[in-house]
Design a protein around this nucleic acid. Structure first.
Lengths: 219, 219, 219, 219
DNA sequence: AATGAATGAGTTTTCATTCAT
DNA sequence: CATGAATGAAAACTCATTCAT
């Protein structure tokens, strides 16, 4: 059993090395500009091995990769989601943005790949992701509405409000794709400013800010 | 002389055909995935001709292309810019977004290329574009400030406010890069809603809205 | 002991499965176009096993295969051979052709392989087969001569006559190699016609056919 | 014009060099065992050029090749055909065999390729060749019948007779495919013997042979 | 100015073979 | 005996680029 499982583990390790290398390179150079050789070199395996695990070659490792990563991303998001509702508005916004900004290296690279290679992806996969994004777009206005009903914010065009929370996220993704990390959301200070700006505008007219003012967020 | 000038015209025509073909293909498939042959085929010229006009080959036609297009884009923007200041807020926002949304097909493709190939571009060119974008980012808060001073809107965090106007533009570019044309700004109705949402929030407290006020959008 | 023998049987079974798969694939696609992998897949064994039974790999299994099959073929022919002499001419020809037409699927595939890969075979093996074929070419004229001496047929150029009996066999092999099964000999009806044609021509002038005439053969 | 045509001629020469090299190598080693590189080396051109003339690569040059050669073969046969009818029987047979034995090196190699790669060829091409062969199979019995009507030979099963003339041709092709040049027809002496054997058998009973009659050859 | 034949290094992919388990 | 992961050389094919015409 030990023999068996160690061999299986080694095999799985090779597959993972290939996927990790592919993720890094596709993320950095894009699909077309990434050579199969360079994936193998980075993974530290021989040229033929990729075709052992991904018989269709480059296309297949690419598809496997983004499906893997997107799965992880979506699961992570779904895990954090329910907790957000209970937070006060300021923390809610901050956590929401944090969640979207994809903390790990892997998911940053996923974002880059999604932006650059969207059209190379399989129809089905794109549909699946679109559905996921639409869920977020649909959920956020309702969330704001509830807070308005609870008197936390004023009544307004919740769809536009939600959109103005989401647009910065997409801007962030765009800049990632361009390898530009000076986006608005990536600076905690500016993120906090934006947060306060929203809260100040949305606050019910005449209402006083609850707390002692926006205290410094933790990165 | 007629021969001379007709030859010159033909020459210029070939160059333009090449650039147009390159724009279309780089926009559609990206730099790496676009073959020099396919550019020539689409332009309808022989294989060697590209090197007559662009001796450095693929890189050069790419650089020439984006510099051409970016030049046009920036000039177009600068041309419209001064006029915006005088418009009332609602028209101001609408015109600003319209201006940014790059009306021509050519500039849509430019947007795609900029997003996908940002890192392949020459340092100098990137700097130049960054400076241009920063000008807009710097100009917009001042513009809002002036309007606040004039009593058109309330006082607030103008940088965040400006950013929340710009983020939709970048979101739009991101979606263009993914060949997705269902972005928020691309629908005039939703653009108007967003417009009204901003105006309503920014309106000086106590001031009356000009129009019927922002009613909640459905959809 | 049971374990021992069952393992031996399994081992032998694996070897046979490999040979059978190799025969089928070499016969269908030829030597070069047949991959070792596909042999293993068809045999249902793991990739390394072939090298256990045939340490020299593809070449060795190929050589083993054709030697196996050719051995069987030659033994089968030698077994039937002596019996032919006693048959009357009509039956003699029919049986001879039947014998040559290699009844089993395996030997059909052998024929294909021999034709297509003759030059890839080892010198010694080719010599051995050539000797075998030459024996047939040498035996047949003598057989006809004996029948002439016995008054069954007229005197003639026995070598050419023998050749005209053998040529159809080789034509049949050629068509097999081309996967064409519409050859003259493969149709029992036409085989019988050809048979009657030979008998009629060879019959001693003025002699009457012995029997009731050629009765219908059984496919 | 000279410039133009010299360039065209050079281009055509390159194409021909490639085709000639491919013919030689496919004929010698078969399709699968012939590398594209070796074709280029033998033709003395760079690796990429083959794909300039035959964009689909190996398959395409193969198809082009056999179509070229088969066209030539068929035209050559059709050219000689009508003249055969007028010849006396002995010369008729000899000329017919000569014609079939494909005198040029190129067509010998074609024969090898046809035998070995029949199944790799396009359906349409195979159909075309089959029709051609069937024409010969259909023509020859009629030819013999006419000679019987004219009293040159006796009445018999003309289809079988024709087949016994054609089978040696196919045997010859089979042996070519095995690179064995000791076939019956390839020796003029034995061809003459076979010829005389046929003539003697077909001669009308009672008619006198022209020559001294067929004496038994000794291998 | 324009052509397209020619080049050869580079890419993706295949494949026979080895070997640790 | 049997497995299948791993190897790397070689195959087919692509592609930017050059150059004679």
């Amino acid at each position: 059993m030990t023999e068996e499982s160690s061999r299986l583990k080694q095999a799985e390790a090779s597959r993972e090395k290939l996927l990790a290398a592919a993720l890094a390179l596709f993320g950095e150079h894009g699909y077309s500009a990434t050579g199969v050789r360079s994936i193998n070199r980075l993974a530290g395996v021989a040229d033929g091995l990729l075709y052992h695990y991904f018989p269709q070659g480059k296309k297949e490792i690419f598809q496997a990769l983004i499906q893997n990563q997107a799965q992880e991303l979506m699961e992570e998001v779904k895990r954090c989601w329910p907790d957000l509702s209970r937070l006060p508005l300021t923390e809610f916004l901050d956590q929401f943005w944090q969640m979207c900004l994809t903390h790990t290296q892997a998911q940053q690279q996923l974002a880059v790949i999604l932006v650059k290679e969207w059209r190379n992806m399989e129809e089905d996969f794109r549909r699946q992701l679109e559905r996921f994004f639409r869920q977020i777009y649909a959920w956020l206005p309702g969330e704001l509405k509830k807070r308005a009903a609870a008197g936390e914010i004023r009544t307004m065009d919740f769809q536009s409000a939600a959109y103005s929370v989401l647009a910065p996220v997409l801007e962030h993704y765009l800049l990632l794709a361009c390898n530009y990390d000076g986006g608005f959301l990536s600076s905690p200070r500016r993120r906090r400013q934006l947060n306060e700006y929203f809260v100040a505008l949305w606050r019910k007219e005449g209402a006083q800010p609850k707390g002692p003012g926006p205290d410094v967020g933790k990165s």
